[in-house]
């Protein structure tokens, strides 16, 4: 019990540390950015002398780098991401307003890519038909070689422009609010593809490895059928690496959603990031990066909890393979 508490304590600690590192990197980039620091904070907007002084005081631009670093760190950690100059509203509010739309794509994308990857990966691993295996594995390489934004554009060209079956832009028809299902189809396909392909590959090799383990011989000696061996003994062990991969996959899907939201005009965090980059609304850019990082860290903590539930040897993975004493 104690070991478990220590483990989760360490996990929380390292996640927090990771967040600090990201904030530090962002601060360093901000410092390294060329040009007038005030202008790079507010972007292209004209700055009145009064506003400039206000900013200089607020961000401590008259102080030393070290002091500025701690001021920035302190305000970020207390949830103050600054004010967006384009809308003059708090950055955090703008981002949280978009978070729901991003998650509306990212969560189903994670679920679909994981489940689909597991199913096809298992099929590829256990089939005795080499053509089917090569087909699935090769198809997976093909899928993660497609630039996902280009896939999105082509899907629009085919299904929206040529065939007129599905809408190309936004979350719902013009003037409607909320998210319409038919608006989700193309963005989801686009977002899912590469992670789905990656998961197939991981699941396939993980299942093959799992079915090559010695305990499979024990299962065979009990007189189990191949099916029973695959599902009872192969699966639970093959799933362990899948859980870790799904955790990392959330990060990749969130990053990928920046491109997908841009292609489909999907008003999520990613599109906000792109708009803010174009408007030089630096604080929003940094804010989105921080919020995405937090989402990724939460996903990782959840992954770790699931892993702990799935693998009774919670601590065994911190040792090199097979060195259990």
């Amino acid at each position: 019990m104690k070991a478990v508490l220590i483990h989760y304590g360490k996990l929380l600690g390292s996640s927090f540390l990771l967040l600090l590192v990201v904030i530090t990197i962002l601060f360093a980039l901000l410092e390294a950015a060329p040009g007038d620091p005030v202008q790079s904070l507010v972007g292209d907007a004209p700055v009145s002398e009064q506003f400039r002084e206000q900013l200089v005081a607020a961000y401590g631009l008259d102080r030393s780098v070290v002091e500025r670093y701690f001021i920035y760190m302190g305000s970020v950690l207390t949830g103050d991401l600054g004010t967006s100059f384009t809308t003059q509203t708090p950055v955090l509010d703008r981002i949280l307003g978009r978070l729901g739309n991003t998650l509306a794509l990212a969560i189903p994308a994670t679920v679909i890519s994981t489940l689909g990857g597991i199913i096809l990966g298992v099929i590829a691993a256990r089939t005795r038909n080499p053509l089917l295996d090569t087909g699935i594995s090769g198809g997976a390489v093909g899928m993660f070689s497609i630039p996902n934004f280009w896939l999105g554009l082509m899907l629009i060209a085919i299904f929206s422009v040529q065939l007129g079956w599905l809408p190309a832009q936004g979350t719902a028809s013009y003037g409607q609010s909320g998210i319409a299902l038919e608006h989700m189809v193309l963005p989801l396909i686009t977002l899912v593809t590469s992670q789905f392909a990656y998961n197939i590959r991981v699941m396939r090799s993980s299942m093959i490895e799992s079915l090559g383990q010695d305990f499979v011989d024990t299962a065979r000696s009990k007189g189990l059928s191949y099916r029973q061996i695959v599902w009872r003994h192969g699966m639970p062990n093959a799933m362990l690496p899948m859980i870790t991969i799904t955790g990392y996959g959330v990060g990749l899907i969130l990053a990928g959603s920046v491109l997908v939201e841009r292609v489909f005009g999907w008003p999520g965090m990613g599109l906000l990031l792109v708009e803010s980059i174009n408007n030089n609304d630096t604080l929003v850019v940094l804010g989105v990066a921080i919020v995405i990082t937090v989402c990724i860290l939460i996903a990782n903590i959840l992954t770790d909890i699931v892993y702990g539930l799935a693998d009774p040897r919670l601590r065994a993975r911190f040792r090199p393979k097979g060195s259990e004493s």
């Binding site: 990771l18 980039l29 990060g251 990053a255 920046v258 980059i277 850019v285 990724i296």
Partner: peptide
């Protein structure tokens, strides 16, 4: 480990946006 958790695209995007 850091770069495994934080996607490169995100960092590259922010860095390129700020650094030119």
């Amino acid at each position: 480990e850091f770069f495994q958790v934080i996607p490169g695209l995100l960092l590259a995007l922010v860095a390129a946006a700020l650094l030119g």
